[in-house]
Amino acid sequence: MPSASVGTLVRQRLAELRDALRAAEAAARGGEESGVHDLRVAMRRLRSLLATFRPVLDPSVTEPVRTELEHALRELGQSRDAEVAVETVDRLLDDTGLDGLDGLDGLDEAVVGLRARLRLDASATGDDVVETLGSTRWAALVVLVEELVSHPPLTEKARGDARSVARKRVRREGRRVSDRVVAARGAAGPDELAARLHEVRTAARRLRYATETAAPLEDKRIHRIGSRAKAVQSTAGLHHDAVVTRATLRHLALDEAVGEGAAFLLGHLDADEQRALMLLEKEAWSAIEELEEQLRRL
């Protein structure tokens, strides 16, 4: 797309994301395993597009859409966090959680009880998905997205050269990542570091999405940045999942209803996850350094 306008690039991406949103909504309504995850990804991509290419689009039209997308993401986020907790604890129990605990009285009952408790919590959040997708607010959001694709509110800047503008927008998103990396390096303790790395992750994700919009331009430098941003998103995401899982384990351990055997097991799992967290932190920093190197070359 060497001579296309950036407006053409954005218009094309809007249509792609609208289609992805439709497909993911259908999957979520049908109860497919990855439906809610795919729906949230499609919404995040659309929200990021509207932010990254804000100069190309009339914000009086796009900002209300971004606000509604953010609300829907929050509503559906609780369900995803519960799913992550179930998946991670199941993995810990299957792979490493029972090592050295064979002699613990009531171990089998504790394991069964923990699995049942987590699935009960996940099932409760699943009701939120049905409620969100059945709401009039969601229906209004779908209409807004359809209108956005049918009549994109392009500004005069949409006439700009696609390659030139895309590079500028990718650089801008790269600076957002760099600012958050500086904050993470200055974190005072593990809790602040976890929060700062999560901010790096969200910024890297938005940078990655910006490179995806620019994909038709076949710009090798932008492509390499996208690959590195994806690696940061992935490793920092695993780190965040481990943080969320540890919080879930500690919350369950404080619940008197789980019983003494389950509480002991939860403490063992928490220690395993703490060790994994340290390794994931190193991997995240390695991925961040590789991304920084690519950003310096753009």
Results as ranks from 00 to 15, higher is better:
228 R>L: 03
148 L>N: 01
99 D>M: 02
74 R>C: 06
112 V>E: 14
64 P>R: 09
258 V>W: 02
45 R>V: 01
189 G>V: 04
293 E>H: 15
184 A>D: 05
209 Y>T: 07
125 T>L: 05
156 E>L: 11
277 L>P: 02
29 R>L: 13
11 R>D: 06
130 V>T: 14
141 L>Q: 02
249 L>D: 11
9 L>G: 05
120 L>T: 10
294 Q>F: 14
54 R>Y: 04
11 R>W: 06
231 A>V: 14
158 A>P: 00
248 T>Q: 13
250 R>C: 01
221 R>L: 04
66 R>D: 05
231 A>M: 08
137 R>N: 06
20 A>S: 06
57 L>Y: 07
203 A>V: 07
30 G>L: 05
169 R>H: 02
251 H>W: 05
73 L>E: 15
174 G>W: 03
159 R>N: 03
217 L>A: 14
184 A>G: 09
249 L>I: 12
285 W>E: 12
75 E>H: 09
85 A>C: 04
229 A>R: 03
107 L>W: 07
51 A>L: 02
10 V>A: 04
171 R>M: 04
11 R>A: 15
151 H>E: 15
262 A>T: 14
192 E>H: 09
249 L>P: 09
63 E>F: 05
62 T>I: 03
290 E>R: 13
142 V>K: 13
182 V>W: 11
277 L>N: 07
